[in-house]
Amino acid sequence: MSSLLPPNSTSTEHALDDATARLGSVASPLRDLWNPHTCPEPFLPWLAWAYSVDTWSDAWSTEQKRQVLAASYSVHRSKGTRYALQQALNSLGYSVEVIEWFEDAPKAEPYTFRLVATINQTPMASLSLYRSLIDVANATKNVRSHLTSVALEGNSQAYLYVGALFTVGETITLAAEAP
């Protein structure tokens, strides 16, 4: 592309014109940057900031970060409801059951709830998991409700192989003769 600078332009203006002329050839995948599933991993915290994600942790796996970003719209749309709380907690990749005070047996203190998270194939629960569940719940719940406890249940799958052998036959005893 030819320059549009006048003949009396300075060398700084020519250098700036040369530098900006190359910007058109730089790929700018804006659609990928605004999509939580295709955004490059280093840009996920910036996308979370743009989406106003309330709770974010660098310790989360890339898949957890993408799920939290994907669920952020539905969480913000219905924030303060049980549905939003359930969506936000499930976006972390765990099956979480919200038990409110009137569903508990025996009934708990009014306007309280507890969480029961099922963790599949995880060898051990960490303190960061507890903190993530508590932070997400406190950021998403309604103002009047209070979280009383978080319980973690482990769930493992294993395969059991059973075999049997049954034989029928005769016993033959061989004896060697001495010469």
Rank of each mutant, 00 (worst) to 15 (best):
S2P: 08
S2R: 09
L5F: 06
P7F: 10
E13A: 15
E13R: 10
E13K: 04
H14I: 14
A15H: 06
L16N: 12
L16V: 13
D17F: 08
T20D: 05
A21W: 00
L23G: 05
L23F: 12
G24T: 07
V26R: 06
V26P: 03
A27F: 05
D32P: 00
W34N: 03
P36T: 08
H37G: 00
T38G: 04
C39E: 01
E41S: 15
L47M: 02
A48Y: 09
Y51C: 12
V53M: 05
V53W: 01
D54Y: 07
W56G: 09
S57M: 06
S61H: 02
K65V: 03
V68Q: 08
V68H: 00
L69F: 06
A70E: 14
A71S: 15
S72V: 09
S72P: 02
K79M: 10
K79C: 07
T81P: 01
Y83T: 15
Y83M: 12
A84M: 03
L85S: 05
Q87I: 00
A88W: 00
N90H: 15
G93S: 03
Y94M: 08
E100N: 03
E100H: 01
E103H: 12
D104E: 15
P106S: 05
P106M: 04
K107V: 14
A108T: 04
P110H: 02
P110R: 15
Y111C: 12
T112A: 04
V116C: 04
P123Q: 13
L127T: 15
Y130E: 10
S132Y: 05
D135F: 00
A137Y: 12
A137H: 08
A139E: 04
K141W: 06
N142D: 15
R144E: 10
R144V: 13
H146K: 14
L147V: 07
S149F: 00
S149H: 06
L152P: 02
Q157A: 10
Y161S: 08
Y161M: 04
G163D: 11
G163H: 07
L165M: 05
T167Q: 13
G169Y: 09
I172Y: 13
L174N: 11
L174K: 10
L174Q: 14
L174V: 13
E177V: 08
E177T: 10
A178R: 09
A178Y: 09
